[in-house]
Design a binder for these strands. Structure first.
Lengths: 220, 220
DNA sequence: TCTGCAGGGTGACAACGTCACTGAACCGCA
DNA sequence: TGCGGTTCAGTGACGTTGTCACCCTGCAGA
């Protein structure tokens, strides 16, 4: 448990030795399995999470039951908005789910407060993390307001696939990614398939022509 | 200039006397006329602004030139995201415009850093302000993704009108408010007019039946 | 009075969302 | 191996929103 995880966070490189010591001593490394609900309405976390491995997906659900993925927290990043949106008076319908198995450092609120007071680099880290998330949200707004769906879908398929050449997901899940309806995804994927860019089977999309997909995705 | 503006900010009520003194001594009250661009791409503010009077409107503009209003900062609130989104590495296309004549307190970055270190209540104020803005952004996302335009337009007409019974604005400006196109606003307003809810003339919308408008707005 | 221009109206069409329903693939189990 | 339930995907019809091209109108300044 004396693992030196701090070096995994570039933003924390400037921490002084005593701050590092506090952080390592008073935080716990936790593991949560894929699918766990990390926070959500009626579930306010008393920790700031720094992700070591895995990813956390943050959703919003509308009253009518439609959903959209707001952003993901990747390894090496922190889950600041998590704490922030819980801090707000309004209870909000955003929730965080473990997208994969997750290993994270949990910094208790008191330790967090202490560090923010004591350490300028730590504070900068926190504010930088906020800024990053906020620009993520700006991105989301720009895309849902102004970007065509075929382009957004192509982009999302690329990022979900990563290095692999297939994505294991349902049309419904893709619809939630983009905040649209399943039927719309089905039709778009059919069009992609018709053009020979992808192949589909139940629960799986294979990318056949990454070049064409990339070309569309970059037609931003 | 020794005006005690601190009491206008409920979140700052808990500040200790010495912090209050620093804040009042080292901050300046500034006035900017309506229409001034307060921040934007290539214009990063070195101050945190606390609004005393007036309102600031924060926009985002897409590459294709379409715009959307993200939120407004009202008197008694602070412009935290302003500083935050400038802090992010990416240069972002959000910009802040004085929606009316504005009077505000400008807290220089150094003073801000000092206060965040010294004062727990000040820090809470800052974090609470962040949370508020972030939930505002969540609201925006929920609305543009899932809410019908007629409902959003009715809501916006109500808030823009305030106590008055008319709104002095063009269709184009309303389109920017909601991130849509002018033609769409024109058609919706015509429908409202046909139902006898509003009357229109060049650059002006009069609310004739606030009850009906409110009813639609609350059909969220 | 003329003229330029911002504001607003309109029709056609494309893109996206919704609804109702159908069929296909998969799973557990007899 | 076949059965039945469930999840996933396909489809047509239709309503809403976005885009494009173009027009008309009211207003201000020359």
């Amino acid at each position: 448990m004396t693992e030196n995880w701090i070096d995994r966070f570039p933003g924390l490189a400037a921490l002084s030795p005593d701050v590092r010591e506090t952080l390592v001593r008073d935080s716990a490394v936790v593991e949560v399995p894929k699918g766990t609900r990390i926070f959500g309405p009626g579930q306010s976390p008393e920790n700031l999470l720094l992700l070591l491995d895995g990813a956390v997906r943050v959703h919003q659900t509308s009253e009518q039951g439609r959903e959209i993925v707001l952003y993901r927290v990747a390894a090496g990043e922190s889950c600041v908005l998590t704490t922030a949106c819980m801090l707000a008076h309004e209870d909000y319908s955003a929730e965080g789910l473990a997208d994969t198995d997750v290993r994270a450092v949990a910094i208790p609120r008191k330790v967090f407060d202490d560090l923010v007071t004591r350490s300028i680099p730590f504070r900068n880290f926190v504010f930088a993390a906020y800024s990053q998330r906020i620009t993520d949200l700006f991105h989301v707004i720009e895309e849902i307001a102004f970007q065509r769906l075929d382009i957004r879908l192509a982009q999302r398929l690329r990022t979900l696939a990563g290095d692999a050449d297939e994505v294991r997901t349902t049309h419904q899940e893709l619809a939630v990614e983009l905040g649209t309806a399943r039927e719309v995804i089905s039709r778009q994927l059919q069009e992609f398939q018709r053009r020979g860019w992808i192949a589909q089977s139940r629960g799986r999309v294979s990318l056949l022509d990454r070049g064409a997909i990339a070309h569309l995705a970059e037609a931003a």
